[in-house]
Amino acid sequence: MQTAAQVDDRVFTALADPSRRAIFESLTRGEAAVKELTARFAISQPAVSQHLATLRAAGLVHGRREGRSVYYRVAPGGLRPLVDWITQYRAFWTDSLERLERLLEKMDP
């Protein structure tokens, strides 16, 4: 069973910031260049670039250079550590409830 501490801290840290979360959510709607993202949010281009670097380090987005622009998109599976956390609990409860059924058979045959 995982605790939150074992889920990659970088994913949590990256999504902890409301601006980064907004940028990430925005990218789920499609690829965008830094310039486009800057236009969407009331933050400076260097700040957007910094946020994107943090998201990229966390494995949440990919960057692709084309000419003088870098285009960013959501990395498939970037949120997997969070999903896996829930998946692990699902497995834990499935096993536990199977044990419960066997116990009930012994208690109340």
Partner: peptide, 12 residues
């Protein structure tokens, strides 16, 4: 930071 984000908020 780990506590600063909220899955239930917004569309995440």
């Amino acid at each position: 930071a780990r506590y600063g984000w909220n899955m239930m908020s917004g569309r995440l």
